[in-house]
Design a protein around this nucleic acid. Sequence first.
DNA 1: TCTGGGGTCCTAGGACCC
DNA 2: TCTGGGGTCCTAGGACCC
Length: 427
Amino acid sequence: MHHAFALIDCNNFYVSCERVFNPKLLGRPVVVLSNNDGCIISRSDEAKALGIKMGAPLFQAREAVAAGGVAVFSSNYALYGDMSARVMETLHEFTPEVEVYSIDEAFLDLSGCREADLSELGRRIRAQVYQWTGIPVSVGIAETKTLAKVAARVAKSSCKARGVVNLVASPHLEQALERVAIQDVWGIGPNYARLLRTHGVTNALELRAVDDRWMRRRTSVTGQRIVLELRGTSCLPLELCPPSQRSLTVSRSFGRPVETLAEVREAVACYTTRAAEKLRRRQLAANVLVVFLMTNRFRDAPQYAASTVVRLPAATAYTPELIGHALAGVEQIYRAGYEFKKAGVTLIELVPEAPVQSAMFDRLDRERAQRLMQTVDEINRRMGSQTLRFAATGLKQTWQTRLEHRSPRFTTCWEELLRPQKPPAKT
DNA sequence: TCTGGGGTCCTAGGACCC
DNA sequence: TCTGGGGTCCTAGGACCC
């Protein structure tokens, strides 16, 4: 019995989200920026046509942006996360076998579907998601996940495909493989692409013919699997319940260079607070905390980067305790005389939060701490995040990340709901 | 002046143990 | 001239993903 996987991939996802709530953006070039308004991370087709590159820093694309009349947005993850959930919910209408692979992609296992019905099912999924969420998607269907990725890529680039490509038992399989450049194959990054090109392998069709033992030697099992998957041997199963999370990071670039220990402490306290919130929302606790701090690698100035690992006395998700350890870490790695650009906190060795296991000489009443955090989280959920804050996070936070072009949080914030436009005043 | 953030997996090599 | 072998655990670094 053959597998059939579908990859559902949202087109230009962040831009599409902005357009749902602002239809005037349809047909116009639009880009969405990374945190700190630094790089371009989502582009409409019109923006791509202007030659604006993925990942380009905004300041380098300024000219094209101005000349093309490009609409620019800061990223609005509250909005995108919520839209993503709506898309995924829609997909569950078709099958419970949904692997949410990223914010804008999901794999579906369609092995139960009759081969003759696969293409039609793909078209129905695409139409339903568009009708219910306003998000356009591409659908790729094939016998392995890697081939489904190939199919979705072809679906995106071909007008004729109308958003759906089915490669199961398709006479066009080789044609499709040939159209996908080596660096666009799932799992082939810049380094492997360079290696393969020096051996004359330039597209997915040629990669399929590569000796898989050679591939194994040069690129480990991950590369070998790609070759096998391209040949139709499924090596990557659908992950219905992904293994529990192993690490959790909160880090940000500063809105401006930061030099003083006081400001670094504030920022790290802030990031630690966010990390602890994430931990609790996922019902986890951490055993180890890593703090890191670095200068701007793009600047011609003295460089310094450091990190330190703090093993916690017991697994915890208690904000004040985590802040305390994080700040002790900051004291260790901070050096005066540098312009810092970024800091962050990573939590590892995550374990399920309850029941609380106390160390022998634990001075903290962990049950009380947990109740306190529940109360704080509830208040912040109801009254808006940062209603209750920890003093260590500072008041003015002048180092904060820039977000100058953010759209309203249309779907997750009462104050920012979409309102009907006032009709223009009659004159 | 302006260059994101958050993840995972694999391997090699050293430390350590019997 | 001659220097075990094999297992486990940990870490750092590299590669990739969106």
